[in-house]
Simulated assay, not measured.
Amino acid sequence: MAEEIPEALPEAVPAEQVELATGTYDGPSGPSGPSPTVASAKPPGGKPPLRVVQGGRNPPADLPAAGPRTAAPPARPPRAPKKAVARTPEDEYQDFLAMLREEGATGEVVAAGERLSLAPYAKAAEARAEIGAPPGTQGLHLFPDAVGKHIPGFKKDAALVLLEPRAINTEMDAGWKLAFQRMQAEGRATATAWEVHNAVSESIGAAAHLSPGVKASLQLRLQDEMFIELGLDPAQELILPYANFYKPKP
């Protein structure tokens, strides 16, 4: 059986152009029988000579050595997904400062109040579980959703809330509920956005179990929610909630 190296055999090679060379062949353990026959052909046209090897187990010494065989590299194992890193209040604060600089703020930023961790109301249950909040912890709205439900664009579930015990929720709401009842007792069905803001802000300030720093942060957050996020005008009339709170005595 013949193996062609390195190109196809020409259609015809004249006998006078073929030289046969024979010799002994020593295998790994001595002479191994018939010698291989090597034919060197010089085809017309000036092409490189064709070499044909017949018989024998090993190629002649003058043949170019075959390059080393290399196995395909093993498949790279998939990378493990990066573990999510929880953001801290400091991360959020630095993002806030960066936003102020992008908007053109210069100089030192003077912060008021304490840093808070807030969560969207729709995610309050998940946030409670994540921080291990005790039973009875609630998500406290700052701008009352009973007022916000009449305002286009207000979404209760998207509003940021503070996670605190039910008792603090009651304290924070008591003041503005009383203020709205008094307005209704005067025969009013609406109040300006600024009046609503002041009633809620004062109610937050009166909560006995909140620190002064937390109160200041919540009051500033209320202002942002009403007049920046919702875009309310301070003079805009808002519908007072719980019209049945005040029932005149006969």
Score class of each variant (00 low, 15 high):
83 K>C: 00
239 I>R: 15
222 L>P: 03
39 A>M: 15
76 R>N: 01
194 W>E: 10
241 P>V: 09
170 T>M: 08
89 P>T: 09
238 L>A: 01
242 Y>I: 01
56 G>T: 06
223 Q>N: 08
46 G>M: 03
155 K>T: 11
209 H>G: 03
85 V>S: 15
188 R>L: 04
79 R>M: 06
127 A>E: 08
50 L>N: 12
98 A>R: 14
201 S>K: 15
159 A>T: 00
73 P>T: 09
19 E>C: 01
40 S>N: 08
215 K>S: 09
67 G>T: 05
245 F>S: 14
128 R>K: 10
29 S>L: 10
250 P>D: 01
239 I>D: 10
30 G>E: 05
245 F>Y: 12
65 A>E: 08
209 H>S: 12
84 A>M: 08
184 Q>H: 03
212 P>Y: 10
165 P>C: 12
207 A>I: 02
153 G>S: 05
105 A>W: 13
55 G>R: 04
145 D>R: 15
58 N>Q: 10
154 F>S: 11
166 R>A: 03
161 V>H: 01
87 R>I: 03
244 N>W: 10
13 V>W: 10
235 A>E: 11
81 P>N: 10
186 E>H: 12
107 G>K: 04
132 G>H: 07
124 A>W: 03
143 F>E: 10
225 E>W: 09
58 N>D: 08
204 I>T: 07
213 G>Y: 14
240 L>W: 01
165 P>H: 13
192 T>S: 13
8 A>F: 07
18 V>K: 11
105 A>R: 11
246 Y>P: 04
230 L>C: 02
68 P>V: 01
237 E>Q: 15
228 I>S: 11
71 A>D: 00
153 G>Y: 12
68 P>C: 01
145 D>P: 12
114 E>G: 04
218 L>P: 02
34 P>M: 00
142 L>T: 05
87 R>K: 09
125 A>Q: 11
56 G>F: 02
164 E>V: 12
120 P>K: 12
72 A>F: 08
206 A>N: 14
202 E>T: 12
36 P>Y: 03
214 V>E: 07
47 K>M: 06
95 D>Q: 08
220 L>A: 08
39 A>N: 06
92 E>P: 00
162 L>W: 01
73 P>H: 12
83 K>I: 07
179 A>M: 11
160 L>M: 06
85 V>N: 13
195 E>I: 08
32 S>F: 02
172 M>T: 13
221 R>Q: 10
204 I>S: 06
173 D>S: 15
14 P>T: 08
200 V>D: 10
11 E>K: 15
238 L>S: 01
16 E>T: 12
203 S>W: 14
25 Y>N: 08
131 I>K: 12
80 A>I: 07
243 A>L: 14
214 V>D: 02
94 Q>D: 00
15 A>C: 04
109 V>H: 07
16 E>L: 14
115 R>I: 00
185 A>V: 02
217 S>F: 09
169 N>W: 05
233 D>E: 09
130 E>S: 09
69 R>G: 04
123 K>W: 03
151 I>K: 11
143 F>Y: 15
5 I>T: 02
49 P>W: 01
161 V>D: 01
232 L>M: 11
175 G>R: 10
237 E>D: 13
60 P>K: 13
123 K>I: 02
79 R>W: 03
